[in-house]
Nucleic acid binder design. Structure first.
Lengths: 204, 204
DNA sequence: CCTACCGATCGGTAGG
DNA sequence: CCTACCGATCGGTAGG
């Protein structure tokens, strides 16, 4: 009796399909550049049907952004829980975060960088809270790096510069390029981590 | 006889006004999130009047992006022409680039980071060519830094990480904050420049 | 989830 | 540059 009927299951699938299709289009053409009909059509739905799953267009964007953020955050939190040196943790976090940004299945995370700004009210607040958790996690990683003598500073600015570089990668990344996602992540780590006692860090 | 009539001068002024108003709104709400009427209204114009100055909405975006790019590029080129050490040039370029991104009068440059993607055809090609000049200029600056022993590498990746960090600053910059634009630029320079012989650069 | 539909708004134009 | 307007498209709804 409490067992879900066939229709419910299918509805749930379509909901997920919608989120994935929407994320893809929002990413390519922006939130306002994508119509709900277009999203529907891309998965053979009729124009009005998405509103059976979401009260309005903004809620659909929210679902995309939230899904992307939570999926990535879960992976990062898992790494945070492992026993790792400051350097190894930093590298693992960077690799995973970049994988979330670039791997095809999840167009959701890149949306977080820009499109979340179109959210308002409660939707916006919830996403900002999730972003806050990201930032705290990364600030801690920088702080550990600093304590281990591998970063000259452990403040927000260092962290934001790093995240800026990381989040911009989807803008120029070429999947056909020579470097794998992991190698790319490692290059960014290499450019970020440095001895806190290096001449450049002391003097400049 | 060849002297411009009063109307022409006024038209030119309105055209500039339009670009500035459009850039401001495009920046806040995105290209597709801003209607032409909204831009017009913000400077007390009627709904159809912008189309006296621009053939269509996309051309207006193009004008914004082009103006922002060219203004910044002119300033950077001037610095490039000065006699400076690799480090001093790098710092001057960074300060100026960031000033173009953050100073109020010109909302145009931040558009270049994201909204230019909505351009098509010739408009798009022209902007891509200008962006190319930016990249070449910065690659050269990195190459000089490398030759001077102040950067472990001189490739595109280093340059793109740096530009990613730089272009993300408008997303979190607080004009009321403690750091001035110049101080912020100098912090980014400090994090980017390092001795090519530092332990971190050698080992990692 | 589809069919059929609505009011609002959009980019753009003609004519002055 | 304004007035007045157009066709197209949009987000969203009712009713099944």
């Amino acid at each position: 009796m409490a067992r879900p009927r066939r229709e419910d299951i299918e509805s749930d699938n379509r909901r997920e399909e919608l989120i994935i299709a929407a994320a893809h289009l929002f990413r390519d053409k922006g939130y306002h550049g994508t119509s709900v009909r277009e999203i529907a059509r891309s998965i053979n739905m009729r124009a009005g049907s998405p509103f059976y799953h979401f009260a309005n267009k903004e809620d659909l964007l929210f679902a995309c952004v939230e899904k992307g953020l939570k999926a990535c955050l879960a992976e990062l939190d898992a790494i945070d829980g492992e026993e790792l040196s400051a350097f190894d943790r930093f590298r693992a976090l960077t690799r995973t975060h970049l994988k979330c940004l670039l791997e095809n299945r999840q167009d959701m995370l890149p949306l977080v960088v820009n499109e979340w700004q179109h959210l308002e009210g409660r939707n916006r607040e919830e996403i900002m809270a999730l972003r806050q958790r990201f930032e705290l996690l990364w600030l801690k990683a920088f702080s550990d790096l600093n304590k281990a003598g591998l970063a000259p500073r452990a403040d927000k600015l260092s962290c934001w510069f790093f995240l800026g570089a990381l989040h911009a990668i989807p803008l120029w990344y070429d999947p056909q390029g020579k470097l794998s996602i992991t190698e790319l992540a490692d290059r960014l780590v290499e450019e970020t981590v440095r001895s806190a006692r290096s001449p450049a860090a002391r003097k400049l």
